[in-house]
Amino acid sequence: MEPLELLLTLPMVAGVPPADLKRLLEVAEPVSVAKETLLLDVGDAGNDVIIVLTGGFSVELGQGSTMLPLAFVGPGEVLGEASLFRQRSPRSARARAVDDSLVLRMDAGTLDVLVREGNGVPRALEEAVMRTLARRIHDSVHAIDGVLSSALDAAQPKSAFQRLRELFTR
């Protein structure tokens, strides 16, 4: 399928006029990403956002035996969103292609151009980003709560409790 056809299938941009999607493809060129490629890495400067058109990515923390898969991001979902509005703050997780994938990558400047033009894509993207971020936070906090509950029941609960309390309150 052509990139425009792929875009038209994504619920994220449902309601955005096709002319706006065509304009998006003029300013954000589709990029092919081979399976196992590290698209985003922890500590990288974060100044762009990526829309997944095909394939998928694993969002991870840690490496090797300590790697934790936090989320799977597939077609119609967004990567890099946490850094987009935090003014080049470093990435806090990595994204690895789990399949050959096609993405649209654009920086904040490109998004600003679309905003100035009155294009409907930035607003659709903002809504998708809000819901993606909220879901990831909810899932991670839920998981952390579960782990802390277990850790606090362990043989030496106080050290874990005090340490995590510091982390939560700093």
Partner: peptide, 28 residues
């Protein structure tokens, strides 16, 4: 933009906490 900024900061903090879990060398 304000809501996304709040969410971005929050996810960053959550990821840092998870990362500390991963890097922790304590047996517990």
């Amino acid at each position: 933009r304000a809501v996304i900024l709040a969410l971005g900061n929050q996810l960053h903090a959550v990821n840092q906490l998870l990362d500390l879990f991963i890097q922790d060398s304590g047996d517990e």
